[in-house]
Design a protein around this nucleic acid. Sequence first.
DNA 1: AAAAAAATCCTGTTTTTAGGGGATTGTATG
DNA 2: CATACAATCCCCTAAAAACAGGATTTTTTT
Lengths: 212, 212
Amino acid sequence: MVIKVFIVDDHYMVLEGIRSLLQNEKSIEWMGHAMNAASCMAFLQQQQPDVILMDINLPDMSGIDLCKEVKMKYPSIHIIGLSSFNQQSFIQKMLENGATGYLLKNATREELVYAIETVIEGEIFLSDEVELTVQKNEDSKVPIITRREMEVLLLIADGLTNNEIAIKLFISTTTVDTHRKNLLAKFEVKNTASLIRMAAQIQLIPYIKPKN
Amino acid sequence: MVIKVFIVDDHYMVLEGIRSLLQNEKSIEWMGHAMNAASCMAFLQQQQPDVILMDINLPDMSGIDLCKEVKMKYPSIHIIGLSSFNQQSFIQKMLENGATGYLLKNATREELVYAIETVIEGEIFLSDEVELTVQKNEDSKVPIITRREMEVLLLIADGLTNNEIAIKLFISTTTVDTHRKNLLAKFEVKNTASLIRMAAQIQLIPYIKPKN
DNA sequence: AAAAAAATCCTGTTTTTAGGGGATTGTATG
DNA sequence: CATACAATCCCCTAAAAACAGGATTTTTTT
């Protein structure tokens, strides 16, 4: 039985690399690729692969969200997250959204092939490095914050004061203050600086250009 | 004349992709690759390529620093920065350190070949997207901060108060406050939240695990 | 329907930052 | 050798955030 594989990644070099690595694998069939979430979904309407290798950074949507969407519509497809970042936050979210594998971009051909074969068996594949990260941080999960707390966090990151945030959200300043306190507690930090640093590092805060 | 090219990148998939893309180019010779800064320097002691494609994220040293080092010892080698990030801060630092090209990992074969040919001519190559970024932000350079300001910035990011920083650096609290004010001014922001966000995003603040 | 979680609001106090002014001493660099 | 820049220090005021300890009302989830 040949395993049909589809790749979603917006980097030509990586696409080309994976194709080259899988070229001589007789048990694996390269079905094609997509360079963004939209064309991935379009492709899936026509045909379904057994395994999708999915980059977590895509131009139109995060691979994390795309993973959820694909799994919702096509639960039988196995998804392997693909990233250069060995970060707890990414790995965790990807697995929560239905991925059963997580591969770093420095994976060797052997790892790549083994990963595909493993998820097809219904098992979970994490590369060694990734596994280490997950184990090490097993009890230090990414904080679970509510929708409202997220809104407040983003506005804090934008440099707004509690008062300004209150006006923007049509709530009282004291409410904003409460959300802020809860954020500090959940992140286990004691001031805004640490809060924003952590949030930025686990990619909770979207990138904005320095100024233009 | 054949152009000798060497690649420094720690991702197999990217290495393999570039090799595959350059395979049929008769005018380009693949000399080999290194997966970290140390083995790159070791290789250069034996032989020198005409062009190095250099990832800016390496395990042992940043490509930005490696670029400087290579250019110092081997000024005639042309260096093209390689990254998935189209970020002013990276591009700027890479060019400051002697690179004459900057390529995104979503570059096509044509772009890749053209980039190599361009830098060999002694000209600067930036992919279109990158060029746009540079132009757009031409006046909003990455702030130039002093050594001491950097120290203070990192301690602020670590969650220390002015007072705690003062004790740690054996200086007065008012001095720390002055540095802090200067940081806010240089980043053109009005509070710590924005400061840390910007600093984290232009990679001034090193990544630390959420906690372990 | 009950319990849990989220969102809202309050009153205080203390600590820390931000904003406005300075000023002095080195150390580079033109 | 002047002058720019970095690093150090000071005062004062106002604003904002952190800390403590509540409470009520919606939503969700069980």
